[in-house]
Amino acid sequence: MLLVVSRVNDVGGQTGFGDFTVEPDEPPFHADWEARVYALNAAMLRRGVYNLDQFRDAIERMPPADYLAAGYYERWLTAIETLTSGHDDG
């Protein structure tokens, strides 16, 4: 039997998320650490530590409450931490 799993990130058509705000002249990153997270992910993908599908999966299987509480690059940070936890000593 096919088990269809719904994940918290699958928000298309849901109601109740309220309004979005448009930030004029928004910078690419809102803090230096966001840029470092972006770069760490690119470096891990380039090195083949994990691939893009694994990265997305690591974000999307965050516990729903954590996912919703985290900012965009915090989700990335969590995913990189999860996917590299076995790489401590090379």
Binding site: F20, G71, I80, T84, H87
Partner: peptide, 26 residues
Amino acid sequence: MTAHHPTSHTAARVRRLEERLIAAGL
């Protein structure tokens, strides 16, 4: 929209991750 938490706590988490990945030669 999703909240931003550009806190020193998060920045410290990123530094720890970065140091770990650099130390691992990645």
